[in-house]
């Protein structure tokens, strides 16, 4: 694995009034890595992700994403990242290819690039026949995979996935992860939050957030050895059961 770091944070903190959502997060994500970001609801995952995406200004600490500073170069960061949230995030009333064209277009891709990408992407997903179908008419599993492909259509360095497989059946989830692996093989760094502990096993490294701090961070295998358990589920439980914060 390449050891070039694409996300570096140093005591990254976000306060909302007296509430500390993220407390001195310090970690590093390498290029091409699949980095799992775990935590119970309300642990501060989404806040951390938003700061890294340039949606939220940190209260203190430092962070760079793709080599750009989150305070001063948010716009440069936005150009280099992709994002997909738990909520399905394509336009229902546009066709598959119109969606691709739109999202490619707002990243400033040229029409010919978009066309090339569109046909490559559709054949990869075996959706060629559905190019002119409205997104609302294609099955949910396909939508999810399409949404992921669209989020990396502009060739970002890093893609942030916020609980991307929420409400998806196990088979589709497995296929979804195949897509993630493919992207990672091409050098895209994947930063993913999830609730599914089987998915945590698929990550190269995971960080587990509890009450706004990173409770532990390592490869899944090493975490299991460290806590002397057989699954990530038990690792998570060992760390999260002492959480004070209620879910939001």
């Amino acid at each position: 694995m390449n050891t070039e770091a694409v996300i570096v944070t140093d005591k990254l903190t976000k306060r909302f009034g007296p509430f500390i959502a993220c407390n001195e997060l310090t970690f590093q994500v390498d290029k091409g890595e699949i980095f799992g970001f775990l935590g119970a609801n309300g642990a501060g995952k989404t806040t951390a992700m938003r700061m890294l995406c340039g949606l939220l200004n940190p209260s203190s600490g430092k962070a760079t994403v793709a080599g750009f500073d989150v305070y001063t170069q948010a716009n440069r960061i936005k150009q280099r990242i992709g994002y997909m949230s738990q909520r399905f995030s394509l336009y229902d009333d546009l066709t598959v290819s119109e969606n691709i064209r739109f999202f490619g277009g707002i990243y400033g891709m040229s029409i010919s690039d978009i066309k090339k990408k569109t046909s490559a992407l559709l054949s990869e997903l075996q959706l060629e026949k559905e190019a002119k179908t409205l997104v609302r008419d294609i099955p949910p599993g396909w939508k999810q995979k399409l949404a992921f492909s669209v989020s990396i259509v502009h060739g970002p360095d890093i893609v942030f996935l916020d609980e991307p497989t929420g409400g998806v059946d196990p088979v589709t989830r497995r296929q979804f992860w195949d897509l993630i692996y493919e992207a990672a093989d091409k050098g895209v760094t994947v930063f993913v939050t999830t609730h599914y502990m089987d998915e945590a096993e698929y990550c190269n490294r995971v960080s587990i957030m509890v009450d706004g701090v990173i409770a532990d961070l390592d490869a899944p295998a090493r975490l299991k050895t460290k806590y002397q358990v057989s699954s990530m589920e038990e690792v998570f439980y060992a760390l999260a059961r002492n959480a004070v914060r209620k879910a939001d």
Partner: peptide, 13 residues
């Protein structure tokens, strides 16, 4: 509501 606003805000648009 759709969640697409987030995507737009994350984009350089």
């Amino acid at each position: 509501e759709l969640g697409t606003m987030e995507i737009l805000l994350v984009s350089p648009f």
